[in-house]
Amino acid sequence: MAAGVLFACAALMPPGAKRLLADQSDRTHQIGSKLKCMCSGCDQAAGKCYHVGGAYSGPCDTAKTMLKEIDTHIARGMTDEQVLKAMIQEYGPLAYVEPPKSGFGLLAWLMPILYLLGGTALVIVVMKRWRKRPVAVVATSSANGVRVSPELLARAREQAQRETEE
């Protein structure tokens, strides 16, 4: 199973990693992490956008502007939900960093589950089919009992060698 998976990379990402940024609060960044940076250069979240080709390779200016807007909304006393709604209203549904769990976006979340369920069902069906297959037994009998043909013996030895070496 080698190799496990690089793809789990960003895996184990910090849902609540501590951010103590100078000019933005934890709350700003938590809301910012649910919004996509609208710099059009990447699919990163606002506040985590360091895309190549931006103003410079470093924190993206667009993301910084978005975080400041969130700050302004918070200062007006809005709840997280209200801030998110206000930002989506301004930038459109594209500003969600991950697909919404409703409408067409729900499909994105369902697809991996369907793959896993479908794949597991397929593996189970395959295993059942392979289990049912009869084992071919080729042997010649003689008065002294069961005798194995030299060809079969050679094949069996080769198979045993193959299957035990690893």
Binding site: V5, A8, A11, L12, K36, Y96, V97
Partner: peptide, 21 residues
């Protein structure tokens, strides 16, 4: 309209699969 699929989505999907592997 385009729906974004960013890092949080891939993390949520792939963390359990990675652990299973």
């Amino acid at each position: 309209s385009r729906i974004s699929v960013g890092a949080p989505f891939f993390n949520k999907v792939n963390i359990p699969l990675g652990l299973l592997l």
